[in-house]
Simulated assay, not measured.
Amino acid sequence: MHLIITDARLARSRAIHLSGTRLILAGLLLSLCLMLVAVTLYHWVFLKGAREGWPIVGSLVRLVVKDEFAERDRFMRANLDAMARRVGEMQARMVQLESLGDRVLGLAGMAPADVQKSDGRGGVLVSARNLSMEELQSTLDELERLTNQRVDLMTVLESRLFDQHIRKKMIPTHAPVTGRVPGSAFGWRVDPITGQSALHTGLDFQADTGTPILAAAGGVVVTQEYHPAYGNMIEVDHGNQLVTRYAHASRTLVKQGDIVRRGQKIAEVGTTGRSTGPHLHFEVLVQGVFQDPQKFLSAGGTAAGAQVAAIQPHASPGQPAIPAAGR
């Protein structure tokens, strides 16, 4: 396209050549300018009409604003209803959690009265009516408070149950020699070497040389030595001044300072020291005082404990305690 531009007196002229690309760019530029002008006028007219209360423009603005608020209100109401349903489900789960917490409290040996309850009514209640934003926020805050309280409770329960678990593992209730019938039990008997009455301070397990000796509970090895009476001997400290002793071993597998777990192999049966044959002499001491190992094994439900209970002799209360190792 060629455009010729002349002045009023036709004294000068100028020719402009427009190609297809230039025409397209010029059209786009013109369209953009028209759109900007239209948007500016529309915005200016509606704002001015809304502020000054022009009849037609004011009605249109109120209509648009009303529809916008109605749509926003429907959207918020739908979301509030959905949130209220979710809060109701959370409330039901909180009630179940409180019931579960009470049962676990019983297992942990704690009375429900020892733990602060919410208000005795099972927590917050979400009704079926439409909730306002303030009511919903208040309900959520209450649920958060109850949740934090339950978390604290479960933390206490976890600590109590873990403590009970550890204490149970530290009590010598595991049979030190499995699958064997105990020989001499704890109590007064005729010493097989001297032929005199003496207190047998432990429990004997008859077994072949090399039979594994197991730790009756977890603890720390405090003694691993050769004793003239006990032979190769191991003592394990379980805390609270509770010690177990394993005597007459042919071979010891742990040393002083080692940490052993419940049921771990720590030695092998033998006949070292003051012994008349291969066996394990097993003792339990509390605050340095000899205790009947059968009581501990019976508490653990072991077969050895049950078998010893049937043959356990009763010491006379008037007789002095004279330690006598060996069979």
Rank of each mutant, 00 (worst) to 15 (best):
L3G: 05
T6K: 14
A8H: 10
A8M: 10
S13M: 06
I16P: 02
S19I: 06
R22H: 15
G27V: 07
L28C: 15
L28G: 14
L30A: 13
L30G: 08
L32P: 04
L32V: 14
L36E: 08
Y42C: 11
Y42M: 12
Y42K: 05
F46I: 15
L47W: 13
L47Y: 10
G53I: 06
P55L: 11
R62V: 05
L63E: 09
V65T: 12
K66S: 15
E68Y: 12
E71D: 10
N79P: 03
R93K: 10
V95S: 10
L97Y: 03
L97I: 09
E98V: 05
G106W: 11
P112G: 04
D114Q: 12
K117H: 06
S118F: 14
D119A: 12
G120K: 05
R121L: 15
L136H: 07
Q137K: 11
D141V: 04
E144N: 11
V151I: 11
D152R: 15
T155I: 10
V156P: 03
R160H: 08
F162H: 13
H165C: 04
R167W: 06
R167A: 15
T178S: 09
G179M: 07
G183C: 05
G183W: 03
F186K: 03
F186I: 09
W188K: 07
I193F: 14
Q196G: 10
S197P: 01
I213W: 00
L214S: 00
A215M: 03
V222E: 14
Y226R: 08
Y230P: 00
N232T: 00
Q241W: 08
L242N: 04
L242Y: 05
R245M: 11
H248C: 02
Q256M: 11
Q256C: 07
G257D: 04
R262P: 05
R262M: 15
Q264N: 04
K265W: 00
T271F: 02
G273F: 00
R274V: 04
G277I: 04
G277E: 03
H281I: 01
H281T: 02
E283R: 05
V284F: 02
V284D: 01
V286S: 10
G288N: 10
Q291T: 03
Q294P: 00
L297Y: 08
G300L: 07
T302L: 02
T302M: 05
I311E: 03
Q312L: 14
P313M: 01
P313T: 09
P313N: 08
H314S: 14
H314V: 10
A315T: 12
A315S: 15
S316F: 03
Q319M: 09
